[in-house]
């Protein structure tokens, strides 16, 4: 699977060898290969279409770097453009608000919200010396609250003991009161996984958001997600004012093209990536790494240089 994608792009470079400059005609087949490579990496079709068109307008007539062939030039442009798209606006968590600063996590079932909540709490404790309170509003999934409690206890982080017989909205309100009362600097609110087409559950999270007024609302997305990630991202983006994205499970071999889809659809930066199940497996987002993964090459630029 991996080699095929690299081969495609190698082929792209070969096919343009010896051409003088990039023209509409000589890049069209190449762009088709790029389109397929991105689709194979799970970038959503509408996002691929827009991207390929923007590359087309950008490269036609483009001057070619003397040391590179046209094919290499094209790949370099694609690589740089993807990095710019993915990485533009990457920033640390915004904590500049009246404490308790609220961070709300949202996403589909099993995306990694609860694990990411614990990871972010640990991150803020270790890197920003913040006093953090973790709270769950997942009254649906069996043992979801206990899962967060176990993680909080293990990390020595404050935990609000949510009562699963109360509505999620009430729990969010109570957790915020507790964070104020006990002078926590940050409150991280975990939510139940929900489908973007579940109107009732989407209304619930909107209400939770209105109640706790988060400074950061992070959409948590699995890096193995497929084409449908655009639909989910769009719906969550419409329901909530998302401020960022957390990309999880990047420790596998997924190409992670959904990251580009979600970045484009929400317009919000990917702030962190999850790199494992343990609570310290969280890193600030590295656009270069995800892009070279998407293009199916360990290091795109070294490949460009070696042709």
């Amino acid at each position: 699977m991996f080699d095929k994608l690299s081969e495609r792009l190698q082929g792209v470079m070969e096919s343009l060898r010896g051409r003088g400059r990039l023209t509409d005609e000589n890049i069209s087949d190449t762009l088709r290969q790029v389109r397929m490579a991105l689709l194979e990496a799970d970038v959503a079709l509408p996002v691929v279409k827009t991207f390929v068109e923007s590359i087309r307008t950008k490269v036609v007539g483009q001057e070619i770097d003397k040391s590179l062939t046209p094919g290499q030039t094209l790949i370099r442009i694609i690589n740089d453009e993807l990095i710019a798209l993915m990485g533009a606006g990457v920033r640390p968590l915004n904590l500049r608000a009246q404490p308790p600063v609220v961070i709300l996590l949202a996403g589909l079932q099993g995306a990694g919200k609860t694990t990411s909540a614990a990871k972010l709490a640990k991150w803020l404790k270790d890197h920003e010396r913040k006093r953090v309170l973790l709270a769950s509003t997942d009254v649906y999934r069996p043992a979801a609250i206990l899962q967060l409690e176990r993680l909080a206890t293990q990390l020595g982080i404050g935990f609000y003991p949510s009562d699963p017989s109360k509505p999620a909205l009430t729990l969010a309100r109570e957790a915020l009161q507790e964070a104020r009362r006990s002078l926590y600097e940050v409150l991280i609110v975990d939510t139940a996984g929900r489908l973007h087409v579940d109107a009732e559950m989407m209304a619930e999270i909107r209400a939770i958001s209105a109640e706790v007024m988060p400074t950061e609302t992070l959409f948590v997305v699995d890096s193995m997600a497929g084409q449908d990630a655009v639909n989910a991202a769009r719906a969550f983006g419409e329901a909530l004012s998302l401020t960022g994205v957390v990309l999880t499970k990047t420790d596998g071999d997924a190409r992670g093209g959904a990251a580009l889809s979600v970045r484009q659809i929400t317009g919000q930066p990917i702030l962190f990536m999850g790199t494992g199940e343990k609570t310290d497996a969280l890193e600030p987002f590295h656009a270069e790494r995800v892009v070279s993964r998407m293009l199916g090459m360990g290091d795109v630029l070294s490949l460009v240089e070696s042709v």
């Binding site: 699977m1 194979e40 193995m224 449908d228 596998g252 997924a254 190409r255 959904a258």
Partner: peptide, 11 residues
């Protein structure tokens, strides 16, 4: 297998 996942499910 999670239906919301893409090409990685084949792997």
């Amino acid at each position: 297998l999670d239906a919301s996942q893409g090409q990685n499910a084949l792997q």
